[in-house]
Nucleic acid binder design. Structure first.
Length: 425
RNA sequence: GGAGAGGUGGCCGAGUGGUUGAAGGCGCAGCACUGGAAAUGCUGUAUAGGGGCAACUCUAUCGAGGGUUCGAAUCCCUCUCUCUCCGCCA
């Protein structure tokens, strides 16, 4: 969430900063609301002050058994009563205004960073670096063909179990998924991350706090009976974990890693990536997350990105790093580096991790603070996939495929998987 | 699902109608003592929003929302969360 004071004091600046995302905003209605609530606030606190004075006067009378001729108690009570009705009227008005303001501000995305490239869509994203060998190989098969041949997963039966865009992993497929999760968790643990295993169902407030709501309610599955949602990413519970806390600056940065299943409705993606492991309603992901001192979040951003990259390098998967342009930036992020893994069958890089610096945007929404020079300040949050498991499996299948139809397992994964090759189940 | 007990500041924990924003302790910060540290002592230390150059000052906040009252952490109602016991259950 943006600072409402900034909207009150300089709406033009807010419009300008958000315009680089390609959104045209007219904040003047919201601006007027913020001004009028300020006026109501002043008026209200004057009335409350007066009311408090009267109460104290009456209190001192009862306490000291003062001569009632100094003031008329009943007259004072009458006055207090009148003030009370005025106050409650004003409070109601203020509550309504406040709700409107919060609703509107919650819909505004984060400011892109100074360093975020300009641009309106993904074509203006900037490739920062590449890693690994993407040289052409012959007879490359897609990961879904490989998966089908080796019987690693099933979609047809699964559509009977639930519906399309779900998958059942089978045998070596399931083992590989499990191996990847464990390998990634262990790897991040060695880099100083504390492992959390959060719930998959989260409440509305948690989704709001990390920025998935109110704008993207279509993207998540909801359990209406219980007012809970299936979490679309562990970023949600990881943000909410320290909600409403003031964190001792000595403890910063806090670094967490969490495995979680992720659930996304993928509304509006009909026909896209219908085959394979790329776009599913349910997938597994290992997420890394930092709570950072505000002065150090830029450094933290480089570090969290390289921690995610490290996984790809250990798995020997070719990838590139892309600096996401303002128009393509996620709602809560001010700067995002995407890691894109090489998928030789389609001769493309596909997103496998998104490492974002949200600055104080999520921290303000979730009220997560720290102390700097004895002043309470919102801290910064950063998140990154480390990595999306399904897409990692797709990349391993495609990059490790061999002429005889088997798939070579990356060395680091052998102890987890228990074999250096995937053969047919 | 049934019964009961609770939710107070960064943390623990007093506080049942009137200067209580809240004792005490811990933690934290500063100062003193020290060669340095530990221990000790002193001082300070909630959050948000107004006003003021500032000292300072006003308002709100004791799980949330209502109610009673001139006045509520304290009394009443609703909700919510946590804990204990019983039941059920991986």
């Amino acid at each position: 969430m943006l600072d409402h004071r900034l909207i009150r004091e300089n709406p033009a600046l807010v419009e300008e900063k958000l315009s680089v995302r390609g959104i045209k905003l007219n904040l003047s209605p919201l601006h007027k609301l913020t001004l009028s609530i300020k006026n109501k606030d002043i008026e209200l606190s004057n009335l409350q002050s007066e009311s408090n004075k009267i109460s104290k006067l009456i209190g001192s009378y009862y306490h000291n058994q003062e001569d009632s001729s100094v003031f008329d108690i009943n007259e004072l009570k009458r006055k207090g009563n009148n003030l009370k009705t005025e106050i409650s009227k004003l409070e109601q008005i203020k509550r309504d205004l406040n709700k409107q303001i919060i609703d509107e501000i919650s819909k505004l995305p984060n400011f892109p960073s100074q360093n975020t490239p300009a641009g309106t869509d993904e074509r203006q994203n900037i490739e920062l670096r590449k890693w690994g060998d993407t040289s052409n190989k012959k007879n490359i098969k897609s990961h879904w063909d490989i998966g089908e041949k080796l019987n690693l997963f099933d979609t047809k039966r699964t559509s009977r179990i639930s519906k399309s865009r779900f998958i059942t992993l089978i045998g070596n497929g399931a083992r590989l998924e499990r191996a990847l999760i464990n390998f990634m968790l262990d790897s991040h643990y060695k880099n100083g991350y504390l492992e959390l295993m959060p719930p998959a169902l989260v409440n509305t407030e948690s989704l709001r706090g990390s920025g998935q709501l109110p704008k993207f309610s279509n993207e998540s599955f909801k359990c209406h009976e219980d007012d809970l949602w299936l979490s679309p990413t562990a970023e949600v519970p990881l943000t909410a974990f320290h909600k409403d806390e003031i964190i001792n600056p000595k403890l910063l940065p806090l670094k967490y890693v969490a495995y979680s299943p992720c659930f996304r409705r993928e509304a509006g993606s009909y026909g896209r990536d219908t085959k394979g492991l790329i776009r599913l309603h349910q997938f597994n992901k290992v997420e890394i997350y930092w709570y950072s001192h505000p002065d150090q979040s830029e450094e933290a951003h480089s570090q969290i990105t390289s921690d995610a990259e490290n996984i790809l390098q250990e798995l020997d998967l070719p990838y590139r790093v892309v600096d996401i342009c303002a128009g393509d930036l996620g709602f809560s992020s001010s700067r995002t580096f995407d890691l894109e893994v090489w998928l030789p069958s389609s001769h493309t890089y596909r997103e496998i991790s998104s490492c974002s610096n949200c600055l104080d945007f999520q921290a303000r929404r979730s009220s997560i603070r720290t102390k700097i020079d004895n002043k309470t300040t919102f801290l910064h949050t950063l998140n990154g996939s480390g990595l999306a498991i399904g897409r990692t499996m797709a990349a391993i299948l495609e990059n490790g495929q061999q002429d005889d139809g088997t798939v070579k397992i990356p060395d680091v994964l052998i102890p987890y998987f228990g074999s250096s090759l995937i053969k047919s189940n």
